[in-house]
Simulated assay, not measured.
Amino acid sequence: MSNINPFDKCPVYETINLIFTKVKEEDAIDLFECYSDPITKSRMNNDNCGGVWDTHNIDAVTKGIKGWVQEYNDRFYIRWSINHKQINKIVGTIEIAPVPNTTRFWDGACQTGILRIDIISSLENKIVLSEILRMVSDNFYVDLDIKNIIIKATKDDGERVLALENNSFDKLENSTFPYSDYYIK
């Protein structure tokens, strides 16, 4: 367990090509490009999110960001924007939320986090996804005091499946988890 609760001070993570910072309203313009990408939208994991997120305009994205910030302020989950250093642009988001959603990180009962990666389709490849997954593996277990991370990837998400397999995620089989197509590490 880390000494600093991430809900007291949200960590900033950095890899070779990416910087992860807590999502903020100013990210809406770049994120609208990501979330209006039809391929990205088709890959989004809305399991247990309570509806479909319609990103038909920038106001909808701004409203979504406000919701994510409120969830962070309520100490429920964290969503970071992904800034690609070479192009100095926000290209997507990642989120980690507790499973089951009746628990909270750092409460001693939450053992698993569900990871969501939404990235513009032009960058959804095993190299970029692996860079994200390595950052997650290097930090989230300790920073959130969890033992497992799960993430959705259908067989049609070939690059995502390759990245997961290359980063020691295994297909989640025979689980009581109510959704399908998940991997676990």
Rank of each mutant, 00 (worst) to 15 (best):
C110F: 05
V99H: 14
L123N: 08
E159P: 12
V91W: 05
N101Q: 14
A97M: 07
D107F: 01
G113H: 03
Y182T: 05
H56P: 03
N139D: 07
G92N: 03
A28L: 10
I58N: 03
Y141E: 03
D8V: 00
D181T: 02
V69D: 02
L18W: 06
Y72W: 11
P38Y: 09
L123P: 02
K171E: 11
G113C: 05
F32R: 09
Q111N: 13
H56R: 15
F105A: 02
I114H: 12
I39W: 04
G108K: 06
I146M: 06
R104I: 01
I184D: 01
N46K: 12
F140Y: 08
V128F: 10
V136Y: 01
A153C: 07
K126D: 00
I78S: 03
F76I: 09
A28Y: 04
V12D: 15
D8Y: 00
D59I: 14
W80G: 09
K89H: 05
G50I: 01
F32L: 09
D107Q: 02
N166L: 13
K152T: 01
K41A: 15
F105T: 02
I120E: 10
S122F: 12
S130N: 09
I127N: 12
K41V: 08
D170I: 15
N5H: 03
R134H: 12
D157V: 02
L18P: 05
R160K: 13
C10D: 04
C10Y: 10
N17C: 10
